[in-house]
Design a protein around this nucleic acid. Structure first.
Length: 708
DNA sequence: GCAAGGTC
């Protein structure tokens, strides 16, 4: 019997269907001499430092550089304790049994670096010796699957791909864990100060933008606006020049020949320029663009959108969500008319679907060469019945985008009127002549400048018109906006380089930060570490985040280019370059960064440890004299009374009343504080106790193990 | 108590 192993259940079931295998077993499908089983992503991962004897977070362990990495079953936290994930163990047992019975293994994990790693880690962890061949397909249509199985490759052809994957995995472990422990220990072990190839450059982008925004000095400039009257319709024109100086602007204002100054026809039309502009529809969604759109329109976080999309996928309403491609191949294109027909009953854009049924479809999103592991997001053939509101939002964004992507271009007419009234003025207007794809969501073009007139009256060159009103406008130059989740995701795709053009950005994805599947969790990690917080839609760094940024901003680990550099080397390894050389370099770099962080990390000690800031007042609970403490960087403060502490933890910088504090405590928005340093220099850990329905924190002395 | 990667 042959065993086919896929990366995830949906793919295994699809393959089984094509073969006509129908016997559903626990963890696999059987039939026609094949067993189709699956993983759930990475079931096996690199073992934690403890497996190599590195116990605790101790200076003398650093740098941790295992000679040979060990593999371990993926673990989960149950009540704060790490345990092998029971679901994973169960599936691994299924795979083990099938591998033992197999005459041959067919590797059908996703066609990419991580797909290869997922299989090999399982194969080596199980110490399996059976021969294997590789299925390599980029589309899951029946024809592509059949063709792929007729053309199975020897497993060894992908050895170098595995080496590059293994290097990626081990390098992230070595650099990330060592840097994290080094900085945390050096800073006094008050909290986890994590660093990593992806999260640290991401943090750096947020901090740099925040500082740039905060330190931005707005320049004031002036512009003159006039309102010109054409047969009773007023339109606005702006001075061609901006003025830094008020008096220069004032002179221009005075020179305007408006009616009040005694000019009945003080504006002369010098030129009228009318240009058509065609606007291509947007590409289909990949996960990142979906997350950006959902954030912009509905304020969903990247993580929420991913979870909702995963649910829709499990309900078989949309295709695989964690895709990085915004294209489909010709095989899928053939199914598009049926998918469009499926949307004709939609309350918002059903009419557009009807229209598209008879139209020639736009093929901008069709390009098989740009389909990687997975194609762009599409709705499936199944019609949703009653979806919860938030799922419906995501479903509509995906199906609406499909209608947009295959729609005609939007045709606009741009009009530019140049005129003279003492000096030169210009009026701009845009009229949509044929909305095309814009009819689907029928939303205003948000990019449009507010200076524009929606429509301009018809005027001709040489015409003389009246200036009804004139005004001096005071304007300010604006800083680059703070990052929100949408703009951050976009920036991560291109490592911070700002590229508006969708297709160009697509081309740069290989060197972006993180992957579609991981970006949401990277943002969540930064929030969990209290490096950043959400403030309405914006992402703001905390003092802790800024302090870490300040310490590492000039180091390689904070540069987005590090990923690009690794990717280049990993690609060379895939083509046969030396693995050892890269591994040696990574080890050397780890020694350097560990040493550097241990040297400078102490600077954070004072900044991040709790400090006594105020004298005595009265504890709201025990009525004893208390002192106020604050851990500024974490946005954490509280009250101390003898050995009892009540603390609240909030990222908010505003002052809270005692009543508000008690409400927070009752709602459970409190957290344990670690490593509080008293005036006498003793270090305490806090533990939570509940009494009379209220939370108290008892601080207990501890001995730290960080500085031996 | 750590990374980044994949997925339910």
């Amino acid at each position: 019997m042959k065993v086919v192993i896929a990366e995830k259940p949906s793919v295994a079931r699809e393959l089984a269907k094509v073969f006509g295998a129908t016997m559903k077993k626990e963890g696999y499908v059987e039939g026609k001499g094949y067993s189709f089983t699956w993983a759930f992503g990475h079931l096996i991962q690199l073992a934690a430092p403890e497996a190599y004897g590195f116990k605790g977070w101790r200076l003398e362990n650093l740098p941790m550089l295992p000679e040979r990495f060990k593999l371990a079953v993926k673990q989960n936290k149950v009540n704060g304790v790490l345990k092998d994930d029971p679901g994973v163990v169960k599936q691994l047992n299924v795979i083990r049994k099938l591998f033992e019975e197999a005459s041959e293994i067919i590797v059908a994990t996703d066609a990419g670096r991580e797909g290869e790693l997922i299989f090999r880690y399982i194969y080596y962890h199980l110490k399996c010796k059976k021969p294997f061949r590789r299925l390599w397909i980029s589309s899951q249509t029946d024809e592509a699957i059949k063709q792929g199985f007729r053309n199975l490759k020897p497993g060894s052809e992908y050895d170098t791909l595995f080496y590059s994957a293994q290097c990626r995995s081990e390098s992230d472990w070595i650099v990330g864990l060592n840097a994290t422990q080094a900085l945390s220990i050096a800073a006094g072990n008050h909290s986890v100060l994590s660093l990593g190839r992806v999260q640290t450059p991401t943090l750096a982008m947020i901090c740099a933008r925040y500082l740039e925004n905060k330190n931005f000095k707005a320049q004031i400039y002036y512009q003159i606006a006039i309102w010109v009257n054409k047969d009773g319709q007023l339109f606005k024109a702006l001075s061609v020049k901006n003025f830094d100086k008020l008096d220069a602007a004032q002179k221009i204002l005075e020179a305007v020949k408006d009616a009040a100054s005694g000019f009945p026809q003080g504006a002369e039309i010098l030129n009228v320029d009318v240009k058509p502009r065609k606007e291509q529809p947007p590409l289909l969604h990949d996960l990142s663009s979906l997350q950006q759109e959902a954030n912009k329109r509905k304020g969903f976080t990247a993580d929420q959108t991913l979870t909702l999309a995963q649910t829709l996928y499990e309900s078989k309403l949309i295709t695989y969500p964690r895709t990085g491609s915004r294209y489909i191949g010709d095989d899928i294109f053939a199914e598009i008319p049926a998918l469009i027909a499926n949307q004709t009953g939609h309350p918002a854009f059903g009419k557009q679907a009807v229209e598209l049924l008879t139209a020639k479809l736009n093929k901008r999103s069709v390009n098989a060469k740009k389909v990687t592991d997975h194609h762009a997001l599409l709705p499936t053939n199944n019609k949703p019945q009653f979806l919860p509101e938030d799922q419906q939002v995501i479903y509509d964004l995906i199906s609406g985008r499909m209608l947009e992507a295959f729609h005609h271009e939007c045709v606009k007419e741009l009009t530019k009127i140049s005129l003279e009234s003492g000096s030169m003025f210009v009026a701009n207007g845009t009229v949509i002549q044929s909305p095309g794809w814009r009819a689907v969501f029928n939303q205003a073009d948000t990019e449009k400048e507010d200076e524009e007139n929606p429509t301009l009256p018809k005027v001709v060159k040489g015409e003389l018109l009246q200036v009804g009103k004139k005004e001096l406008l005071e304007k300010q130059t604006k800083p680059k906006p703070l990052y929100n989740e949408a703009s951050l995701l976009k920036a991560m795709e291109t490592s911070g380089k700002e590229i508006e053009d969708d297709e160009l950005r697509q081309a740069m994805k290989d060197t972006g930060l993180g992957t579609p599947a991981t970006r949401a969790s990277i943002i969540e990690t930064l929030i969990k570490r209290e490096y950043i917080r959400r403030d309405k839609k914006n992402l703001l760094p905390s003092e802790k985040g800024l302090a870490v940024y300040d310490l590492v901003k000039d180091k390689q680990i904070a540069q987005a280019e590090l990923t690009g550099l690794w990717e280049k080397r990993l690609e060379e390894i895939r083509s046969g370059a030396s693995v050892q050389e890269f591994k040696n370099e990574i080890r050397e770099y780890t020694r350097t960064i560990t040493r550097e962080l241990l040297e400078v990390g102490g600077e954070l000690n004072g900044k991040l440890s709790p400090q006594e800031v105020e004298g005595a007042t009265v504890c709201p609970l025990c009525k004893k004299g208390i002192i106020r403490i604050t851990e500024k960087a974490a946005g954490c403060s509280g009250y101390a009374s003898g050995c009892k502490f009540i603390i609240w933890r909030t990222m908010s910088e505003k002052k809270l009343t005692e009543e508000q504090i008690m409400t927070l405590i009752e709602k459970g928005k409190t957290d344990v504080i670690r490593g509080f340093k008293s005036k006498s220099g003793k270090i305490f850990d806090a533990s939570l106790i509940l009494s009379e329905g209220r939370a108290h924190f008892v601080f207990e002395p501890r001995t730290i193990q960080t500085t031996e």
